[in-house]
């Protein structure tokens, strides 16, 4: 299940089916689950997309599922659907990192908009993960010496200054710089700085 899906989790069959139809009417791929327990049993790290979760369900409640998933480091955004009296619960969930909540009755296309936004956020997060992994792999190729030179380059120093500080020939610095750029896949010190900034963001 690596395809991004809007996971609909609701104990009411009609609600599940109706939300399924609604989301598909706007080309959102979905999966439906009749209980928090069944979703949790099926869940693994490769699941991606977002969750649409009824806050109140018999058995494990939506909030309990949310806690459990957070404990398992599941990062999919969660949109809670709440009844009239449950706003304080939903607000508490937001503080714990839920993506959003909608109070019933809600505007259906508004829900779809938010689901689409949540899916986009999840996909951006996964892209970022891939990119980070890639940068990390490139960094791993650098020798200790090259890493040292890279620190100097990132500090904005000229080759001449680096050579003096490291007590090596200017020519050697130039060779290191070329290898670093090659291994990191960048063309300039500015590109290099941007690439590493990306890794640090988030």
């Amino acid at each position: 299940m690596n395809e991004p899906l809007a996971h609909i989790i609701d104990d009411d069959e009609a609600i599940r089916d109706a939300l399924n139809w609604l989301l598909r009417s706007r080309q959102v791929s979905t999966a439906t689950w009749a209980s928090a327990e069944s979703f949790l049993a099926a869940w693994h790290e490769k699941f991606c997309g977002c969750l649409i979760l009824d806050i109140r369900m018999p058995g494990m409640s939506g909030l309990e599922l949310f806690d459990q998933l957070q404990g398992r480091r599941c990062l999919m955004p969660v949109i809670f659907l709440t009844g009239h009296g449950d706003i304080p619960l939903a607000v508490a969930a937001l503080k714990k990192g839920a993506y959003d909540f909608l109070e019933k009755p809600f505007d259906d296309n508004d829900l779809v908009d938010r689901v689409i936004a949540a899916l986009a956020q999840d996909s951006a997060r996964r892209n970022h993960q891939i990119i980070s992994a890639d940068i990390a792999a490139r960094l791993a190729q650098l020798s200790p010496r090259e890493r040292e030179v890279m620190e100097h380059i990132l500090a904005g120093k000229y080759n001449k200054v680096i050579a003096d500080e490291m007590r090596i020939a200017m020519r050697t610095v130039e060779v290191h710089r070329a290898r670093i750029f090659e291994k990191m896949g960048v063309r300039s010190a500015v590109d290099l700085a941007q690439l590493l900034a990306e890794l640090k963001s988030r």
């Binding site: 609600i15 089916d17 109706a18 139809w21 609604l22 598909r24 009417s25 009755p105």
Partner: peptide, 11 residues
Amino acid sequence: PLAAISSYSTG
């Protein structure tokens, strides 16, 4: 049922 009706019709 009202919520379901609403979602089906919007769909």
